[in-house]
């Protein structure tokens, strides 16, 4: 099976800055692939390497098996939803969407037909005659999406497309994007710094750090079994245990991670004892921050369970399997 996108030891250096440094990855056709990382981690550069706006300093990029190093952006069967949407301000919505067909020389009736079809797909049927300046952020985002889909790309690149939307709209768009991707069967490559977004939408997540991929895997793998200290820190508000703490809990003396929701507060058979230093109510439950010998552990106490008082000394317990020993520090 041919991968939609394949990076073989790809680097992109800007002077002495290694924006992307020896990245290997393959993106399965028809999958929803998320590139997750803090700003400056190289994820956006990777996206621009796929779209062709950046050229690799080393390594090879293949799109559907074809080496694309000599192919300029306008001749790649890949389209982008830009972070600021980049809608053409002087054209109305329908012309914006039809642009990709217009430059190919498709006749007016066909391209407007297709544009209207896509506007219906993103639920903006009646907005064709408006200018981008007259739309809300969420509507512009949909226009950008429709415009990028008009050429029927085999890979759709999305550069933090939900970043400018407010929380409620962002969640609605997450569901919509995911549904759209399933329906169209196109490979989506999605760049984000929001771990929740990556975990909830993607089939595969690549976590970037300093130009390299720290871990690549399914959302569950990334969340439950982070490979490095960085991944554990970045992906979730997980407890990262130092080698000393791990050993005191009966695990090998290596860095380990422990999910707050896997830590229970118990009366007896405690694996460790800790003092409650802070309580944080977060709606679905309470996060209890505890001082333990050698460090700090956060436990999550769900609704309906007893929340210990500040300053109380309590016992902590967890299943053997949930203490995850990481490969790297």
């Amino acid at each position: 099976m041919i991968n939609a996108v394949e990076f073989a030891n790809v680097s992109r250096h800007f002077g002495s800055v290694r924006a992307v440094d020896g990245v290997d990855l393959s993106i399965t056709e028809g999958s929803f692939f998320a590139m997750l990382g803090p700003s400056g981690s190289g994820k956006t550069t990777c996206l621009r390497l796929i779209s062709g706006f950046e050229k690799p300093s080393g390594g090879m990029i293949r799109i559907f098996g074809q080496d694309v190093s000599m192919i300029p952006p306008n001749r790649r069967n890949v389209n982008t939803v830009f972070q600021d949407y980049a809608l053409f301000p002087h054209m109305n919505v329908r012309d914006n969407v039809a642009y990709g067909l217009m430059v190919k020389g498709v006749d007016k009736r066909t391209r407007y037909g297709k544009a209207d079809e896509l506007l219906a797909l993103v639920k903006l049927d009646s907005y064709g005659a408006r200018k981008p300046g007259e739309l809300s952020g969420g509507q512009r985002q949909r226009v950008a999406l429709a415009r990028a889909l008009v050429n029927e790309p085999r890979v759709l690149l999305l550069d933090e497309p939900l970043g400018a939307l407010d929380l409620k709209l962002r969640e609605a768009m997450q569901d919509e994007l995911k549904a759209l991707q399933r329906r169209l069967g196109i490979t989506f490559v999605f760049v984000t710094h929001d771990q929740g977004e990556a975990l909830s939408m993607a089939d595969t997540v690549a976590v970037f750090n300093e130009g390299r991929i720290a871990q690549i895997g399914t959302p569950a793998e990334i969340y439950d079994r982070p490979r490095t200290h960085f991944v554990a820190d970045f992906v979730g508000s997980s407890n990262v245990l130092s080698p000393d703490m791990a050993r005191s809990f009966g695990a090998p003396a290596r860095w380990a991670s422990l999910r707050p929701e896997a830590v229970h507060i118990v009366e007896s058979n405690a694996r460790a004892r800790g003092t409650v230093t802070a309580l944080r109510y977060i709606g679905a439950g309470t996060r209890v921050i505890l001082a333990v010998p050698g460090g700090e552990i956060t436990a999550f106490v769900g609704k309906g369970l007893k929340v210990p008082e500040q300053g109380a000394e309590v016992g902590l317990s967890w299943d053997d399997t949930v203490l995850h020993v990481m490969e790297e520090g």
Partner: peptide, 25 residues
Amino acid sequence: GSIIEASLDLGANGFQTFRHVLLPN
């Protein structure tokens, strides 16, 4: 700046980008 990139991304060549995106703006 990204409207020029958007035009290229959608398959326009340099001349088309100048004519349809840059010049009108």
